[in-house]
């Protein structure tokens, strides 16, 4: 019984620790997909953002400068994706894979000199200041980026539902004909949505290198950027749901190590795969054969 409690607690703590990059990338992906385009390149953006953030923080001594630089690097890489996909006949899924490759390549290339040095990291906000217990204090030390991510989710949700800009993005994403009829600039909207979405993904990368695990190396991302695409599907293109999806995914990821700390070592590979099994099950349960998913932007290439 006690073991179950320990595991659940560890999963909760783990989900708070690892969910932030998922949150940022899925929000960015959500924005891009709302405009009718998909960007698998956010995996590359995440890695590049992590490297740029770490390098900038090391050079300037300011982790927040690092976060800003990561966002800018995402904006640029996403901008390239957005611009090239505006050309006729270019496949956005394939271009995403290309951007992923190029982004990680550039990050690894320029990141070599930053593997060894230690940069200044972001510090958590100590919500546990009232407690004398180190465990509690640690559990309640929250990364400011996590709060920023939640704020971004709320802002994005509000933006889609209550502002002209949000409405335009949704129209462009839902129906090219309607957008044309209204005279909306389709390519420009998608370009901006992709670039801004990638800027968010870049911040997710900054979290990886500047907060948790808080280090730059080539194995830093284990596919978080790609999995974000799946998270967007099961959060039904709703930014608020992205928060829950990221937290759940993070909790599933903490299952493997926390089971082992209570002595359950059997089948650890399978437990480590828990987040993916969980994702697959959710996809299957929520699938609606033959019809498109509720909330899915009509122009999305993966829906056709």
């Amino acid at each position: 019984m006690e073991a179950i409690g320990t595991v659940l607690l560890a999963m909760l703590a783990g989900s708070l620790r690892v969910s932030t990059p998922f949150l940022f990338v899925s929000l960015g992906e959500c924005l891009t997909e709302k405009s009718g385009r998909i960007n698998l390149g956010n995996e590359g953006v995440l890695v590049l953002g992590a490297m740029v953030a770490y390098a900038t923080s090391y050079e300037t001594g300011s982790p927040w400068a690092g976060v800003a630089a990561a966002a800018v690097s995402g904006l640029l890489l996403g901008g390239i994706h957005g611009a090239i996909c505006s050309l006729a006949r270019v496949n956005d899924v394939a271009m995403g894979i290309a951007i992923m490759l190029a982004g990680t390549g550039i990050a690894f290339f320029f990141g070599k000199p930053y593997v060894q040095p230690s940069a200044t990291l972001l510090s958590g906000i100590p919500f546990g200041f009232w407690s004398d217990n180190a465990q509690v204090r640690n559990a309640l030390s929250v990364c400011p980026l996590f709060l920023l991510g939640i704020a971004a989710a709320v802002a994005l949700h509000w933006c889609f539902n209550a502002t002209r800009v949000g409405l335009r993005v949704r129209i462009v994403g839902d129906s090219q004909d309607a957008a044309l009829a209204l005279g909306l600039p389709i390519d420009r909207t998608r370009f901006l949505a992709t670039a801004c979405g990638s800027a968010l993904a870049g911040i997710g990368g900054a979290f990886l290198s500047l907060y948790y695990p808080g280090s730059w190396n080539e194995g830093l991302s284990s596919g978080q950027g790609l999995m974000a695409v799946a998270l967007v599907v099961f959060s039904r293109w709703n930014p608020i749901n992205c928060i829950y999806a990221s937290l759940l995914f993070g909790a599933a990821g903490a299952l493997g190590p926390s089971l082992q700390t209570v002595g359950i070592t059997w089948g650890y590979y399978l437990f480590y795969a828990a987040p993916y099994i969980f994702t697959l099950v959710v996809l299957i349960i929520t699938a609606r054969g033959g019809k498109s998913l509720r909330g899915m932007p009509g122009q999305l290439s993966i829906g056709r």
Partner: peptide, 10 residues
Amino acid sequence: PVKEAEATNS
């Protein structure tokens, strides 16, 4: 690295 950090925290 991410798994190793998670294991350490666990």
